[in-house]
């Protein structure tokens, strides 16, 4: 967890020089692209574009893209396998015993699996090239979020590694006490409580010390806090966003004019999700 969230790297690259707001908008665009276009070809194109952005524009080391996204890759692979087996169609590709793979299933599988990878990839690029501090500052300055809100964002990031450590300790401690075991539902429920309450207790008690420390440093004294650091908003950021909006346009054009075999696949997907069997 620590590794993914604090992956900001001091390397200089094109994306490092862009302001966080532009990158945030870009991230939303990626989200839309990935969610709206449920066709494998668009997803593959998007994936390639993102890989290009990651390696060339953000200078993310090629290997670390794969390492960081390991859980997503695995999940995507599971989805790929299950979907391509389950979904039936007209064009049979492979048949091994009872297992059949149809072209239609394969296409839905690829598009659903890659969609997740693409969204995650976008986030990796964003986190890699954006200092969290700059993000918080620019969200305050440009989007007008109150200081307490942006500081809360900082805090959330601060608490993440702390809570993770706390969690590991707690799991270990409870294991030793012999918590666990019984399979009955009430026992499970009380186990949940037995775990959550001390966990939240430790977290909250620590957090209250943080609150005291912040209060004693005049936190919230002035609603218009002025940050010591400055964030630049260069033109290149706007151009970057514009470029991606154009890409959406192109994709939309291709899909709506039937250049990409989409409609058919989409219907399959909808049919499938509608109700089982």
């Amino acid at each position: 967890m620590k590794e993914t969230i604090f992956s900001y790297n001091l390397k200089r690259s094109f994306l490092h020089g862009i302001d966080p707001i532009s990158k945030l908008i870009w991230l939303v665009i990626i989200g839309i692209l990935a969610m709206v276009f449920q066709t494998p070809f668009i997803q593959i194109a998007l994936f390639l574009l993102l890989m290009g952005t990651a390696t060339i524009l953000a200078k993310v080391p090629f290997l670390s893209v794969f390492v960081k996204l390991k859980p997503i890759w695995i999940l995507a692979l599971i989805i790929l396998v299950i979907q391509s087996i389950v979904i039936q169609g007209d064009h049979l590709l492979v048949k091994i015993g009872p297992i059949t793979v149809y072209l239609e299933g394969m296409m839905v599988a690829v598009s659903v699996g890659l969609r997740m990878v693409n969204i995650a990839l976008g986030s990796v690029i964003f986190l890699f090239s954006t200092h969290p501090r700059d993000l918080a500052i620019s969200v305050h300055e440009k989007l007008g979020l109150p200081v307490r809100g942006t500081q809360a964002f900082f805090l959330a990031l601060r608490f993440l590694p702390l809570l993770q450590d706390e969690y590991e300790d707690l799991v270990a401690a409870q294991k030793i006490r012999g918590a666990g075991g019984s399979k009955s539902l009430t026992e499970k429920f009380s186990r949940l409580k037995r775990f959550t309450v001390p966990f939240l207790f430790c977290g909250l008690r620590r957090a209250q010390i943080t609150a005291m420390a912040m209060d004693s440093k005049a936190f919230g004294a002035n609603p218009n806090k002025r940050y010591y650091h400055e964030v630049n908003y260069p033109l290149s950021g706007k151009i970057f966003v514009l470029g991606w909006i154009i890409i959406i346009g192109i994709f939309y054009y291709l899909v709506s004019n039937g250049y990409v075999q989409n409609i058919e696949q989409l219907r399959f997907a909808c049919d499938y999700y509608r109700c089982p069997v």
Partner: peptide, 16 residues
């Protein structure tokens, strides 16, 4: 009128 303590509580629960 959220105090710092309230915010911090919110964050801890939110993060977890």
């Amino acid at each position: 009128n959220y105090s710092t303590k309230d915010i911090v509580t919110l964050i801890v629960v939110g993060v977890i």
